[in-house]
């Protein structure tokens, strides 16, 4: 069996998932996570000296903390099964990728296992984020230098 035949067969065998339902689930899951985040943000704004502008950082950290608990107790996997991208796109998904890798590879030791594998999945996000941010900031700075656009 060559590759083409295999991929054809694979398409026939794998059950067709309705796109609309998936989008709906992703919308719900992601929306609920963001609404919880909004609640956390209000908590930080109300009880601590954070403004709308500064409350984002502790909120992200708290959401990752919640992701740690859910990942540790094995609940995040279920959310991911239901929500698809809805659980992957929020930072909790980013946190889950790092945390689950850390837990999984602990048996290989702390330095090589945990330290080395933590960034296996999340690393690409950081690399591309940093590189694209560099390019964008560089272009914008040069454009400002030449007076094409303002800050």
């Amino acid at each position: 069996m060559d590759r083409q035949a295999y991929s054809q067969m694979e398409q026939q065998v794998t059950p067709k998932v309705p796109l609309g339902l998936n989008l709906m689930k992703a919308f719900l899951t992601g929306g609920i996570i963001c609404a919880i985040g909004e609640g956390v943000m209000y908590f930080y704004m109300y009880f601590f000296d954070f403004t709308e502008r500064t409350a984002g950082n502790p909120t992200v950290a708290t959401m990752i903390f919640i992701a740690m608990l859910l990942t540790g107790f094995g609940k995040y996997k279920r959310i991911a099964q239901f929500g698809g991208a809805g659980s992957a796109v929020p930072v909790t998904g980013f946190g889950n990728a790092m945390i689950s890798a850390a837990i999984e590879h602990r048996t290989e030791g702390y330095v090589l296992g945990v330290g080395g594998n933590m960034f296996k999945l999340a690393g690409s996000v950081i690399v591309f984020g940093v590189f694209s941010a560099f390019v964008v900031a560089l272009i914008k700075t040069i454009l400002v230098k030449f007076g094409v656009v303002g800050w």
């Binding site: 992703a26 919308f27 991208a85 929020p90």
Partner: peptide, 11 residues
Amino acid sequence: VVGGLFCVIGQ
């Protein structure tokens, strides 16, 4: 709604 829409794009 906005958070949900980001996730819809992802999906």
